[in-house]
């Protein structure tokens, strides 16, 4: 992967203010997105992620800071340059936002129309795009006749029509069911790999981040509280928001078990094997599983498991050392 910087956000702040209220939506945000990567911004609702992504193509105007796209500050651009730049930055939306009075082919064709692409070239390009998103047979249908997943595919095709370098995804899978979410994420990953398009996505779902992102920023209260490689951030989550999002901490303390126990964190590095059965065989200690929240993604295991602490200290140490050897993080949990 090339590590050339495509997008650089510096000290971005956005304040929504009226006579009575002052809400700091973005608080001094800085981050960089490299060419060719899939960068995820995750946060709870109200964290400011939607405002952030909308600032990038200036659908929203920040109060302070700069957004450098290929070293040009988007916030300083005149209207003409901004319009040209927007054509190089595609965007897809949670609610798809298709033109309801246009057929699928004409939705996808819109960016080509406004760029003045000739009819023959445009026809050809629309055909290619319909193939990329797998909707060749829907060219003459209207959006209302399509399912949510199909509509998002049209949104993606429309965003790709002008051959952008960067695709912004504003909660693109949040209105879709889990199955459809998977197929859209696979499509985004495919686009990233095959067409080399950099993707910046925002989501409130950690699974989306873990599944397709290379790097992640965790947004909380308008600030970036953590940033880095997805595996790295997951393994060493420091922030409260990160712990909540990754499911490393129970959301409420009352969910902690009443008995002394061990929390095992699976960060995707451990081999996929029946670890607890092996534990019993290898150490001769039989452990009691109190709770588990596991995800298997791309052949990796993520999540956490809480097991009861063995009564004897020796057994406890044997368990901890075995699990640690397997590449897992183990912490003792004792309810206060």
């Amino acid at each position: 992967m090339s590590s050339k910087v495509l997008l650089e956000i510096n000290n971005l702040s956005k304040i929504f203010a009226d006579a009575e209220n002052r809400v700091i939506a973005l608080n001094n945000i800085s981050l960089t997105v490299n060419e060719g990567e899939i960068y995820g911004i995750v946060g709870m609702s109200g964290a400011g992620k939607s405002t952030l992504i909308r600032c990038i193509n200036r659908l929203d105007t920040p109060n302070e800071g700069s957004i450098l796209y290929r070293n040009q500050n988007i916030l300083d651009m005149n209207r003409q340059t901004l319009l040209q730049t927007r054509r190089k930055i595609g965007m897809i939306f949670q609610q798809f936002n298709l033109f309801m009075q246009r057929t699928i082919a004409h939705n996808i064709r819109y960016p080509l129309e406004i760029a003045g692409v000739d009819r023959k070239t445009a026809d050809q390009r629309v055909k290619e795009l319909l193939e990329i998103v797998g909707l060749e047979d829907k060219a003459d249908a209207y959006p209302i006749q399509l399912s949510g997943g199909q509509r998002q595919r049209v949104g993606i095709a429309r965003a790709l029509a002008s051959k952008p370098d960067l695709l912004l995804c504003d909660e693109a899978t949040s209105a879709l069911d889990p199955m459809t979410t998977q197929s859209i994420l696979a499509l985004l990953q495919d686009i990233n790999r095959r067409l080399g398009i950099t993707i910046l996505l925002i989501t409130h779902e950690m699974a989306v981040i873990r599944q397709i992102c290379n790097r992640v920023a965790i947004l909380d209260g308008g600030r970036v509280v953590e940033e880095g490689e997805v595996d790295e951030v997951f393994l060493n989550t420091q922030s409260e928001a990160g712990k909540r999002l990754f499911g490393v901490l129970p959301e409420r303390a009352s969910e902690d078990p009443d008995v002394p126990s061990l929390r095992i964190v699976f960060d995707g590095t451990a081999a996929e094997e029946p670890i607890i059965s092996r534990l019993a065989v290898e150490t001769g200690v039989y452990v009691n599983i109190l709770s588990a929240n596991m995800n298997h993604l791309q052949g990796k295991t993520y999540g956490q498991m809480i097991i009861e602490q063995p009564a004897s200290l020796d057994e406890k140490h044997a368990v901890i050392s075995y699990l640690t050897q397997q590449g897992l993080t183990v912490r003792e949990v004792n309810k206060q």
Binding site: R86, N97, F99, M100, I114, S162
Partner: peptide
């Protein structure tokens, strides 16, 4: 729909294109 207008803006529409190719056809 506000979202449809934003989508058209995100695609780099000029104001005139937005009016003639989005607002009027969508409201037809």
């Amino acid at each position: 729909d506000r979202g449809v207008i934003e989508a058209a803006q995100s695609l780099g529409s000029t104001d005139l294109q937005l009016i003639l190719k989005v607002l009027i056809p969508e409201a037809l």
